[in-house]
Amino acid sequence: MSEFKAKLDMCWLSKIADFIEETAKAMGCKDSNIIYDLKLAVDEASTNIMTHGKKSQRKDYFMIHMTKVGKEIEVEITDFGKSYPFDQVKLPLENLPLEEKLKNGFGIGLIKSVTEKAEYKSFPDKNVLRFYKYF
């Protein structure tokens, strides 16, 4: 398992992407499209935490864990702020006008679109987003 402690600052997004790419490659994933999907999902989740949940965060960082199970990579992102309505975003989003789509959890929709399975759990002291990608 690899872990990354990310600051709640947008300038960390590229460092997070580097961590995801390097770790995925080290885990044996060589497909650039799969690595792109992983980076996109983590980037969207990180951006949500840094923007919508930033004021409520009880710590000045959030954690990213990556684990390889067979030919699957599991990514777990833990933050310590207010939860967001992950399960309320349903796919597909095609029936919404473009502008509305981008307002209504489009980032969450992207996470669900590019991963095999994504689940979100909120606890009194933290929120945990976990998703999976086969390679």
Binding site: A17, Y36, E44, T47, L102, F106, G107, L110
Partner: peptide, 9 residues
């Protein structure tokens, strides 16, 4: 080499 939903907006 990369775009997220923020870029689309």
């Amino acid at each position: 080499n990369y775009i997220s939903s923020s870029g689309l907006r």
